[in-house]
Design a protein around this nucleic acid. Structure first.
Lengths: 225, 225
DNA sequence: AGATCGTGGTGACAGATGTCATGCGGGAGG
DNA sequence: CCTCCCGCATGACATCTGTCACCACGATCT
């Protein structure tokens, strides 16, 4: 199925070839920090006659400007990016360009991510280990007004329930993630050591962990960090 | 801000690297667990007239069989894969098919990974946030007998020095990574609790960490885990 | 033969961590 | 109004963790 020609550059002068649903090719913004992956995805989408990658971003904080500059129909956002996460960028896009359809694309199918993405205004959520064909498919479907979400993940997200951690607990757990001691956490967050230990203790119990390290692992896995 | 210049393509008056050993297109095996990324990379390589992706693998333990079945010239291996890491798969390939050129491709430019990859017989080491053009380029160059390594990373790998941890220390640190307690580690590894603590203590000191959590983080970052 | 190193162990000790009871003040909601 | 919950704090207590000294065996190297 890789019998296509046209090695034209993705960001190059787009000749109007075959038409998409709206009459013009679908204009896509692709945001992903790893260039090799980003350009590979662009190549993949470039094989579709009705899709055109008109802009690329390597950082979350470049997304909004790029979307504005290129009159984009659909934005494909990776979550893990420097500058701003794809989720934050999605929220920004929704505020500034409500017409734009946002697809969140991620390595980790964490239920908490799905939840946050939907709350940030995304209309599709794809994991990178889904078949590649789903990517172009999702682009077309969101433009048609559909939402695209892996049903398994959706079920998992509902089953998990919401994040049980309070803001403070999450903040402290995040700060503790890289091995800081209680004293350092207390200093960094302007709290007493006892308070830090209390928050950590309740977080550990809420997550059914046996110590802070496991708590960090669980929270991370569920996308609650 | 990846200013990729020199998009020189194979049709130009360059060196004679437009075909594989027998005059046929270069036969490539692509191993990467995330289908979307794998198929996207395949699409990218498919744009090159002298390269053909003849086999794909989604798991490390499928690599050898796939390479054998398709008479492959170059194997492109991701490191993080289920079943077997790309590094382990590289060692396996060198033992079974010494002619085959192995390119290791990874998300994380950890010096320890580079070192392990080279020891496992890889002849090229690419990070996924390098420009996409380097991928096809590396494939051609390894087939021509060159080694392809990012000089910055090579310098970092030399500067880091070798992994200071003994086998046992690494094993215990790895087991401790997800929050197990000393008692659990002792039980799992058939050691006494005191021994576990001794090993952990020396590992913490070797890595200049302040506790096991930080030690795990440092070891992971350097690719020593 | 002696020195070194990795592995495995013990005992002791200080300090870090996790738990619990308890207190206070403020905001949200019945 | 009163209660519940969150943020913040303290003190006390038990356990876990990290460090240190010291021992023993086998392999390796000089």
């Amino acid at each position: 199925m890789t019998g296509t020609q046209s090695p034209a550059e993705a960001t190059g002068p787009g000749p109007d070839h075959s038409t998409g649903p709206g009459g013009h090719p679908i204009r896509v913004l692709l945001a992903e920090d790893q260039s090799m992956v980003r350009e590979a995805l662009a190549a993949l989408l470039g094989l579709e006659p009705d899709i055109e990658v008109v802009a690329q971003a390597a950082r979350g904080d470049e997304v909004l400007a790029a979307a504005r500059a290129h009159d984009v129909d659909v934005a494909l956002l990776d979550i893990e990016m420097p500058g701003r996460t794809g989720i934050e960028a999605a929220a920004e896009l929704r505020a500034a360009l409500p017409e734009l359809k946002v697809v969140v694309l991620t390595t980790f199918g964490r239920p908490g991510y799905l939840r946050s993405a939907m709350e940030a205004g995304a209309v599709a959520f794809l994991v990178k280990d889904a078949p590649a064909a789903q990517l172009a498919d999702a682009v077309r479907r969101v433009l048609a007004g559909e939402r695209v979400i892996d049903p398994t993940l959706a079920a998992a997200a509902l089953a998990e329930g919401a994040n049980p951690l309070t803001d403070r607990e999450r903040e402290i757990l995040r700060a503790a993630a890289d091995g800081a001691t209680n004293a350092e956490l207390a200093a960094a967050l302007h709290l007493s050591q006892g308070t830090v230990r209390n928050y950590l203790s309740t977080a550990i119990q809420k997550l059914a962990a046996r110590n802070r390290a496991e708590a960090v692992g669980i929270a991370r896995e569920k996308g609650w960090l």
